[in-house]
């Protein structure tokens, strides 16, 4: 089981994502933005950060990195791909996911332990969660407001493609409190919050909240278990 983690210039959370992959029981394979080769991995994580300094638009330059050529083809062919934060922005700019991420409505960077409800559990990244399950993982973004036109939003809702929704106060102005979505097939998932920061005791959101701080790990065990049983 080999899961690739792409590093762009300006990626921040590639090491954390690789650690989450390893703790979930798979081998983490570093993929370089300039290398147009996925090296035969079974799934790919696009990590958080500020690829290319967020120049032009978040994720807009990363979309044209050499690694994205084979990645887009493989994603369209069914390869499980998870984009977290900046990775979500890259997936939207690549047209693998609809909509766009814009500056938070309150104009300030948000960094908090964020309650979510997991709404779609038949994706390779969320199969280990129960439908409607409430989890808490870190959220940290400046441009995390998910926007799309009404027709696209209705389509996402109607097809059950809202993967995760913010619970409680909307932290960034995302339309319909959407925190994560999938493509029509379900194999490509974009998520603004950071499950890779909630995978080990004492390092995730406060264990006294009753969540144990491990709420993010199952995004990674989901894909590992799915690939093993496939």
């Amino acid at each position: 089981m080999r899961i690739g983690v792409v590093t762009f210039p300006g990626s921040l959370d590639d090491r954390d994502a690789a650690r989450a992959v390893r703790l979930a029981g798979a081998e983490a394979v570093s993929l370089w933005h300039g290398d147009a080769d996925l090296h035969g991995v079974d799934a790919v994580v696009l990590p958080g950060g500020f690829s290319y300094g967020d120049y032009l638009r978040c994720g807009a330059i990363a979309r044209f990195a050499p690694v994205m050529g084979p990645l887009v083809d493989a994603a369209n062919g069914g390869l499980p791909v998870l984009g977290i934060c900046n990775g979500f922005q890259v997936l939207c700019e690549s047209h693998l996911l609809p909509g766009a991420l814009v500056r938070n409505d309150h104009r300030t960077f948000v960094c908090r332990d964020q309650p979510l409800s997991i709404e779609r559990t038949d994706t390779p990244w969320t199969s280990a969660y129960a439908p409607g399950e409430r989890v808490v993982v870190p959220l940290k973004n400046g441009e995390g407001g998910f926007v799309a036109d009404e027709r696209t939003l209705d389509e996402l809702e109607g097809e059950g493609r809202v993967v995760a929704r913010y619970v409680g106060k909307n932290p960034n102005g995302s339309y319909r409190a959407i925190a994560g979505i999938s493509n029509a097939a379900g194999n490509v998932v974009g998520l603004m919050p950071h499950p890779e920061h909630a995978i080990e005791p004492l390092f995730g959101p406060d264990p006294r909240s009753g969540t144990g701080g491990l709420d993010g790990l199952r995004f990674f065990t989901s894909v590992v278990e799915g690939l093993v049983s496939a």
Partner: peptide, 14 residues
């Protein structure tokens, strides 16, 4: 330009 229906927080700050 941002589409008219998209919130422009920078413009609002200005």
């Amino acid at each position: 330009m941002l589409k008219p229906e998209i919130l422009d927080p920078q413009g609002q700050a200005v």
